[in-house]
């Protein structure tokens, strides 16, 4: 039997991390295709973009894992995945699955006034947060966005001093306290492993 042709169709914000999981687990046969991370600012557009990409990829792949959480689609992505018979990553968003969905939920109340950074967001802070929210052109909007926030919580995927410094700088820029929590890849790695090697790791089947 030829090996199954597998694809992770992921949010661009997860590109590096998905590749890292594949590499670390010897899953080099799995292809990765990314959609623009900027879709996050318009979550209603995510299901449509995923649907189009899935349809395009069907012919070339036997299995597709959708590398998104709910991401603010309010269940619309799940409805689409059910139609297509596909799975996605666990949880509401990447902050939750990096921290571990259950662990994230358990701290929800304590973290209510936290704005989260990941490696990706720390790297792209200037472009996605400062420019994305228009704070470069209109610094006076700082309070309208972040007036209720107290802390930047950097959920780190890697131990990278330069990125930590960037995240810290981001907190300074917004006038917020800073906290770093090393969480690694959290629930991302098991989700990809159980997708990519179902036959070889039968006991993992049915795991989240």
């Amino acid at each position: 039997m030829p090996p199954r042709r597998q694809l992770v169709l992921a949010c661009g914000a997860l590109a590096r991390e998905v590749m890292a999981v594949l590499e670390a687990n010897g899953l080099g046969h799995v292809a990765v295709r990314c959609l623009p991370a900027s879709l996050h600012n318009d979550p209603k557009a995510i299901p449509g973009a995923v649907r189009a990409a899935v349809r395009e990829s069907r012919a070339a792949f036997d299995d597709i894992l959708v590398g998104y959480a709910d991401c603010g689609t309010g269940g619309q992505l799940d409805a689409l995945l059910q139609e297509e018979g596909l799975e996605r990553l666990p949880g509401a968003h990447c902050y939750a699955f990096y921290a571990g969905v259950d662990a994230f939920a358990a701290r929800a109340e304590a973290d209510m006034r936290a704005f989260f950074l990941t490696d990706f967001l720390a790297r792209q802070f200037e472009t996605l947060v400062i420019e994305g929210l228009g704070l470069d052109r209109h610094p006076e909007l700082r309070d309208a966005y972040f007036g209720h926030y107290e802390t930047i919580v950097y959920l780190a995927q890697t131990d990278d001093a330069a990125l930590t410094a960037k995240a810290q700088d981001a907190a300074r820029r917004l006038g917020l306290a800073f906290e770093r929590r090393f969480v690694g890849l959290g629930d991302l790695a098991p989700a990809i492993r159980s997708f990519a090697a179902p036959a070889a790791t039968a006991p993992l089947l049915g795991a989240r």
Partner: peptide, 11 residues
């Protein structure tokens, strides 16, 4: 228009 512009108008 996007969120920043709307915020400025609202202000």
């Amino acid at each position: 228009l996007f969120v920043p512009e709307v915020l400025l108008s609202a202000n």
